[in-house]
Amino acid sequence: MTQQELQQLVEQISLEYFKRPFRHRVVINHRFKTTGGRYHLADHHLEFNPAFLTAELRTDLIGIVKHELTHYHLHLLHRGYRHQDRDFKVLLQQVGGSRFALDVGNRRPQAKKFHYICTNCGQQYHRVKRIDTRRYRCGVCSGILKITTKM
């Protein structure tokens, strides 16, 4: 799906479900990893994750578009547009938008750099960040942790 087609889809959904026109621009943001979409308060444009623009994720894309349009229309009407606001929750429920985006597997796995072992029971722990072994103990037996490898 191109940016032009996405713009037309957003305008169509806005008229169909919100009975209001969408008069700003839609952008495809290739830097998104876990976010489905974003509404910008300053200039009112919408950004979407290109991973959701495939045909098999079309229903998820429509749910994300409804979610972002809920932010958009409530903000322009000077009503509660944030996730915790009652106006937002009610309108999102009415239009059938999705509350969360589907995980499409774009996250980069973090390397487990530090390997710890319990000196008492032998339980092993793999961690991304270094931990203070004077402060933290084994979760199984409360034994002392010893760093074995720093990769």
Score class of each variant (00 low, 15 high):
Thr2Phe: 03
Gln4Ser: 13
Glu5His: 09
Leu6Phe: 08
Glu11Asp: 00
Ser14Met: 04
Glu16Tyr: 02
Glu16His: 06
Lys19Gln: 09
Phe22Asp: 04
Arg25Gly: 08
Arg25Tyr: 11
Val26Lys: 03
Ile28Lys: 05
Asn29Met: 06
Asn29Arg: 12
Arg31Trp: 03
Lys33Val: 09
Lys33Ile: 07
Gly36Trp: 00
Arg38Trp: 10
Tyr39Ile: 08
Leu46Trp: 05
Phe48Ser: 02
Asn49Thr: 07
Thr54Arg: 10
Ala55Met: 01
Arg58Trp: 06
Thr59Pro: 03
Leu61Glu: 01
Ile62Pro: 03
Gly63Asp: 02
Ile64Ala: 00
Ile64Gln: 07
Ile64Thr: 08
Ile64Leu: 09
Val65Ala: 05
His67Ile: 04
His71Leu: 05
His71Val: 02
Tyr72His: 14
Leu76Lys: 14
Leu77His: 13
Arg79Asn: 07
Arg79His: 03
Arg79Tyr: 04
Tyr81Arg: 06
His83Pro: 01
His83Tyr: 09
Phe88Trp: 04
Val90Asp: 13
Leu91Pro: 05
Leu92His: 04
Gln94Asp: 10
Gln94Ser: 05
Gly96Pro: 03
Arg99Asn: 04
Leu102Val: 08
Asp103Arg: 10
Val104Phe: 10
Gln110Arg: 15
Lys113Phe: 11
Lys113Tyr: 10
Lys113Met: 15
His115Gln: 11
His115Gly: 01
Asn120Ser: 14
Tyr125Ala: 06
His126Leu: 15
Val128Met: 07
Lys129Pro: 02
Ile131Met: 13
Arg134Ile: 07
Cys141Gln: 06
Cys141Ala: 08
Gly143Val: 01
Lys146Tyr: 04
Ile147Arg: 15
Thr148Asn: 12
Met151Asn: 15
